[in-house]
Simulated assay, not measured.
Amino acid sequence: MAVTSSGVAWQALGVMIGAYGLALDYARERRQFGRPIGGFQLVQDLLVRSLGDITASWGMLVQLARLQDAGIFRDEHSALARAFVTARMREVVARSREIFGGNGILLDHDIARFFVDAEAIYSFEGTREMNTLIVGKSITGQSAFV
């Protein structure tokens, strides 16, 4: 069995971190009603949920690297990481854009480019659904490919 790459999952993590960093900076700097929007509960909720997704994805990828180092890495490990991390990436990017409000669709703020990057990475080595089929075959012993 050929070992597939986990590079797409690492790229997705990078996009998450980049989008989150922009959103966090924006939340600290953008002021509404006389204070930074980072002080509002809904903005903090978006940031915390995104940080949780980043942390979980990073942990998964570190474990994946450990499996590679130990020589027990398999295709389904990479497929699971790609499915999980790319889905989390899309959510983090969407939340990050939401923090920008209407400014999130302007090219003046780089957050819009993360949407394009996220969609390209999501589809690059198979969508979540395709990676799910690889993992599903591994755990059930049954191929769902036609």
Rank of each mutant, 00 (worst) to 15 (best):
L47T: 10
L47K: 14
V48M: 15
S50G: 15
S50H: 14
S50R: 08
L51T: 05
L51Y: 12
L51Q: 14
G52L: 07
G52W: 02
G52Q: 03
D53R: 12
D53H: 12
I54E: 09
I54T: 08
T55I: 09
T55W: 09
T55D: 14
A56F: 13
A56S: 15
A56N: 15
S57G: 11
S57C: 08
S57M: 14
S57D: 14
S57A: 15
S57E: 11
S57F: 10
G59Y: 08
M60A: 13
M60H: 11
L61V: 10
L61D: 11
L61I: 07
V62K: 07
V62E: 05
Q63D: 10
Q63R: 13
Q63P: 04
L64F: 03
A65C: 02
A65G: 02
A65I: 01
R66N: 07
R66S: 07
L67A: 01
L67W: 01
L67R: 00
L67Y: 01
Q68P: 01
Q68C: 03
Q68R: 13
Q68E: 11
D69Y: 10
D69T: 05
D69V: 09
D69R: 05
G71Y: 11
G71E: 06
G71M: 11
I72G: 00
I72Q: 03
F73R: 02
F73L: 11
F73Y: 14
R74E: 15
R74N: 10
R74D: 10
R74A: 12
D75S: 12
D75I: 09
D75K: 09
D75E: 13
H77E: 00
H77T: 03
H77W: 00
H77S: 01
S78W: 09
S78N: 03
A79G: 00
A79S: 08
L80F: 15
A81K: 05
A81I: 03
R82T: 15
R82W: 04
A83K: 07
A83L: 07
A83H: 03
V85D: 08
V85N: 07
V85C: 07
V85W: 10
T86F: 13
T86K: 10
T86Q: 11
T86G: 08
A87T: 14
A87R: 13
R88D: 10
M89R: 02
M89G: 01
M89W: 04
R90C: 02
R90E: 12
R90H: 09
E91Q: 06
E91D: 09
E91A: 10
V92E: 03
V92I: 01
V93L: 01
V93E: 01
A94Q: 03
A94K: 04
A94Y: 00
A94H: 01
A94V: 01
R95L: 06
R95E: 06
R95P: 02
R95K: 14
S96F: 07
S96Y: 07
R97E: 14
R97C: 09
R97S: 08
R97N: 11
R97W: 11
I99Q: 02
I99M: 04
F100H: 08
G101S: 08
G101W: 13
G101I: 06
G101L: 11
G102Y: 02
G102A: 05
G102S: 02
